[in-house]
């Protein structure tokens, strides 16, 4: 939640550099919700914002250039969790694999968020155990 202070801080900053005495938080040590190896948030919305929203858009609207990042908002393909779990773990084209950076709980949390927000209203009942099982299954498919 500390992160939410940032827009306020930006309001004070001109041109693009807050004075230390004005900073309500120590931004240099601000947690980016990630390390070199992992995402560290556990909340699905936070994970979505940090890991996914840069490409798929804050509201899941997608982005379109020479290629695209598909919209996740009101996306009928997200009905079954297996599809997003597969993409997150295995990647596809411009979508890299996040398998090493998110644990099973985090994958379940972000998939649940995607399935139940941004105009999606699906069951959202995927568990960390489901993700763990699928992780093994996809890895076996890769080897096979």
């Amino acid at each position: 939640m500390r992160y939410l202070i940032v827009p306020l801080l930006l309001g004070l900053a001109a041109p693009g550099f807050a004075q230390e005495e004005e900073s309500p938080v120590d931004v240099g040590r601000r947690d980016l919700g990630s390390t070199l190896e992992k995402f560290t948030d556990s909340d699905g919305a936070e994970l979505y914002r940090r890991a996914c929203s840069g490409c798929h858009g804050p509201e899941g609207e997608g982005a379109f250039g020479a290629g695209k990042y598909p919209a996740l908002a009101a996306n009928p393909r997200l009905g079954h969790p297996r599809y997003p779990v597969n993409l997150i773990l295995e990647g596809n084209g411009a979508m890299p694999s996040f398998a090493d950076w998110l644990d099973d709980e985090q994958v379940a949390a972000v998939v649940t968020y995607i399935q139940t927000n941004m105009g999606n209203d699906y069951a959202g009942e995927v568990t960390a155990e489901d993700v763990s099982r699928m992780r093994e299954e996809f890895a076996d498919l890769d080897e096979g």
Binding site: V6, L9, G16, L32, L36, E37, C52, C55
Partner: peptide, 17 residues
């Protein structure tokens, strides 16, 4: 790595900050 995605999700001004 993951931190690049954290930056990727920020506005340019926020990144610069």
């Amino acid at each position: 790595g993951p931190q690049a995605y954290a930056f990727n999700s920020m506005s340019p001004k926020e990144r610069l900050e």
